[in-house]
Amino acid sequence: MNEPGKARSRWLSRRAIIAHVALVIWVPGCAIATRWQVGIAVGGNSLGWVYSVMWPTFALFAVVFWWYLIHDDPDSLGSRGLKRMVQDGPPIPEVDGGSAYIAQAEAEDPELAAYNAYLESLSKTAPSSWQRR
């Protein structure tokens, strides 16, 4: 996220620019509409109070939605992006189960090695329903 190229694609992609423009038009529009509705409410139309609350909420939603849109993964957008995401799948982390460490510990401690061998023999005789998957 700190790479400059990535930040640029996040903030200046076509999608991001549509989101910026929509926000820049929408939020001042909400401010104007709020003023207008407060005027109506003060003028005696009680329905104006409902919309006086509504318009600032619309502006707030716009900011929240904009923030989500900017932070969506740009590679997974649209049907094509979704397809790509599913085909590639998540990266499978390479996990070393600590086998080198275990081997070293077993070499140093014969009692541990014997106990591990005992556990392994138990797991081989266990009913298959006990094993994961």
């Binding site: 999608r15 549509i18 989101a19 849109l69 969506d72 997974s76 957008l77 649209g78």
Partner: peptide
Amino acid sequence: RKLRVPVARM
């Protein structure tokens, strides 16, 4: 967003 609809259509 879950359907990954492009932003203008959203």
